[in-house]
Design a binder for these strands. Structure first.
Lengths: 193, 193, 193, 193
DNA sequence: TATGAATGAGGCTTCATTCAT
DNA sequence: CATGAATGAAGCCTCATTCAT
């Protein structure tokens, strides 16, 4: 028996779960496989998680939190708002590549309200982040004057599309540069670029 | 025994399947529920479809084909390329609203290669459509000179994102107008708009 | 619609049934396939037969009756009892080859008492036939004196074994000559052969 | 929850399976019934066996192996080849009585090639065993000179027939003595018997 | 008679979850 | 804490049989 601390066990389960959920999606993932990859028994999984849903929920929450932190971090000290947007896009695409499979589960394969809530909250937070940048850009004169909330929503939505395309079509259809161009093309003052 | 023509039965199954797949995703959809909503017995479903996968595949093919036709139709006689793009966007968003859930199944919750193939082909076709428009727009001077293929890809990707957002966040985050602005904002010659 | 007389339809069903039962065994045979091969609808089969079991039963009865007749016929005018036994063996093996598959169903794949009864009766009749021959052979001095009933049973049993081997091992393990030798070897007076 | 060791559970499943397969044949045997008789849940069966076929295959292999061992054992130290043949017959008939029904499944009610292979191999081995005895008998002068391979085949085939009769007609048609007589009658030198 | 769509029970198999050890 | 055998509900699919036409 490979004795581990509770924390270690829980983490190895989550790590295994990321893998398997990514590879197979939620429904096709079995607790048995997660347990095996985590090097724990089936019953062991249920010591740390109430059920399959909780594993997914924990995972999702963890990843969103981590993403939020990193995204916030990567932006906070950047003066140029265009640069900040570029960074934000970059971190999004990176994360997407890393957790390809998980993003595909975003669909309603499972109808857990808990997950919907947490995701809404997450996207709201991200929108605030973008709004901040846009506001800074507008007031500094770098960006066109615009409806800040609306524009932030559009950017988030557009990013989602990029990410989805990136993730679904293994022959990634477009690059970060193209993504930057599209988003910034609509934001930057004409001629300033 | 609810007597209907074979065609009617098959169609009512497909209609029911659209509903249920949309609501629950592929894995969570049970044949029993599809059958019930179609007003047929479980066994009856298997008269018309070899298995669950075939139902999904038939549905997907049907929707994509129909979409392709409608999209082609709605564009072909439009002179102004900007108008054509707007129309294309409109029909996309409409379709997305109508078949909300089905779009969410895009994931690899099911790994049917047949579906992957058909989808790739579909998106390729759509890209060609957009490229055509862009080319026309560029040569007519309405659009900025650009990498036609790349731009088409970006537009498709962006649209996907809009649609995904539209579909996932029931409080639709942004309007068609915003979508138009973003996409056209990057295409139209400055000042022409 | 290929109009046929009731008799024709019934016969074509039986012919199809022989084929399919032979190829797939009882359980694996579906009414649908029998109907298709018979060129009749599924429902049509049920006009002529109460159910699947009745088809099998009718078939079995028909074949056993026919076999009984043929076997009786092929023996009745033969003077030499050894020759008669040889003929009986020959017709057995021929029949076995022709209805290979059906013989394999003999097992208790289906537990129809009706079939058991009819088979018992058949084998009893066959035993009587053999007993007759043996008695003739013994009284004429061609065969060794022996327990007639017991010997008849043994011969039937032995033949079954030959047939089973013939039918199961596609590389038929032994020839009719070997079969003759074994059976007659135990019957014929030493030296007479 | 009926706690047992894994080995115990697996064995009780196999024991139950022997019973049910024997009584009903392969197709008519349901996992549910096997499970019930084994005192385990339906799902429990699948812990130990991949599927129904594997249960059957395991059983078949086990019985054939055991039979092979016992048959070999019961013969190896016997000097008199006639005695050896008698022993071989005896063990065959005993086994047949014990596993009555299972023998009847021989048909291709299931078309598992794995089973066909294993059976062919088994019968080949048994033939070798008999050939050995015959050779010994012939060279020692107890048996008539004969085609060893052919004779072995005939004996195996004959035995199969006896067994089949024994198994199918519950009113066992003939005794071991009669079986001995037939087989040995063709082998023993005239007058020696 | 004939059709073939429809039924629905039932079989196989999977898997989240529990619990005796 | 940990194990993994055991459970049982539930899903997919088949097919003998029925029945409206």
């Amino acid at each position: 028996m490979n004795r581990r601390s509770a924390k270690e066990s829980k983490e190895s389960i989550l790590e295994a779960a990321i893998e398997v959920f990514s590879e197979k999606g939620y429904s096709q993932t079995t607790i048995r496989e997660v347990a095996e990859r985590a090097g724990i028994s089936v019953g062991g999984v249920y010591i740390y998680f109430k059920n399959k849903e909780e594993i997914y929920f924990t995972l999702l929450k963890y990843l969103l939190d981590e993403f939020r932190d990193r995204a916030g971090e990567s932006i906070k000290d950047i003066e140029d708002p265009a640069e900040a947007v570029k960074n934000y896009i970059a971190i999004n695409l990176n994360y997407a590549k890393k957790f390809k499979g998980l993003i595909l589960i975003e669909g309603r394969e499972h109808g857990f309200t808990s997950c919907i809530d947490i995701k809404k909250k997450f996207f709201k937070g991200q929108r605030r982040l973008i709004e901040e940048i846009i506001r800074k850009g507008v007031s500094s004169g770098r960006f066109e004057r615009c409806n800040v909330e609306g524009t932030a929503r559009v950017i988030i939505g557009t990013l989602r599309g990029f990410i989805l395309s990136l993730v679904m079509d293994s022959d990634s259809l477009f690059s970060q540069k193209e993504c930057n161009n599209l988003i910034l093309g609509g934001l930057l003052k004409r001629g300033v670029k």
